[in-house]
């Protein structure tokens, strides 16, 4: 079934070929590209400052189009964008957009109140940038290993495996998201998310606890690590 579907898709897809080196915004499936195609770098600075030369490595290559949902705004952040798409519910991206703007507002309010109340020596340690807090919180919630269940000889084992950065980001956002949806809400969603992010920024809270639990399980089952390959 899967093979026939793949064949159908290959026939129906038009194979986009890019003759010039340019930033193309046409969305297309990855399947239509050969292995010779190079992933894009949609950064205006990259194209303006580095002028293409004749002996350039890239002058011989074809380049994939840029992702359709990426913008050239200076406020664009890739990790934040991925976070938005994972928290999304029922395709209501306006709602999630508003949620994230409001959480950043809440974080700014909480940190500014701290900043104004603190002494002058402590003021340097307080982080006011919500984006930096967000990045630090995600980094603290990212796991180093993952655990997968494998059935072998009639019994299932929890086997520790390595993770790539994409999976790390997904696990961190998922654990923050489930903290957000947990239980009966007392406050607004933005305030809850802001508190969770600030807790993760200080290595506390539910999202960090999930990561530590996963690490514990992986450490306990480290004897099964060879089961995947054997």
């Amino acid at each position: 079934m899967a093979h026939s579907l793949q064949r159908l898709l290959l026939v129906r897809n038009i194979q986009w070929t890019i003759t010039k080196q340019s930033i193309c915004v046409i969305p297309a499936l990855n399947s239509s590209y050969n292995k010779t195609f190079v992933p894009p770098n949609p950064d205006p600075k990259f194209y303006k400052d580095d002028v293409p030369a004749k002996d350039d490595e890239l002058s011989q290559k074809n380049i994939k189009p840029a992702p359709s949902d990426q913008t050239y705004s200076c406020f664009y952040d890739h990790e934040l964008h991925r976070f938005e798409k994972i928290v999304l519910r029922k395709g209501n991206s306006v709602q999630t957009r508003q949620l994230i703007w409001r959480t950043f507002e809440e974080i700014k309010c909480i940190q500014l109140k701290k900043y104004n109340a603190a002494d002058e020596d402590e003021k340097e340690n307080i982080e006011l940038n919500p984006l930096k807090i967000f990045h630090q919180a995600l980094d603290n919630a990212k796991p180093l290993v993952d655990v997968v269940s494998v059935s072998k000889g009639g019994a299932s084992y929890r086997v520790p495996v390595s993770v790539n950065p994409n999976q790390q980001l997904f696990f961190a956002t998922k654990s923050i998201r489930e903290e957000l949806w947990k239980g009966k809400p007392k406050n607004a969603a933005a305030l809850r998310l802001a508190k969770e992010l600030l807790a993760a920024y200080n290595n506390e809270g539910g999202a960090v606890k999930r990561k530590l639990d996963l690490h514990k399980e992986a450490h306990a089952n480290r004897a099964y690590a060879n089961l995947l390959h054997g």
Binding site: V38, N41, P42, F46, P52, D56, E57, L58, H78
Partner: peptide, 12 residues
């Protein structure tokens, strides 16, 4: 000099 490696890490 522009090379393939510079293109791949656009996410960062």
């Amino acid at each position: 000099m522009r090379n393939v490696r510079s293109m791949s890490d656009f996410t960062k």
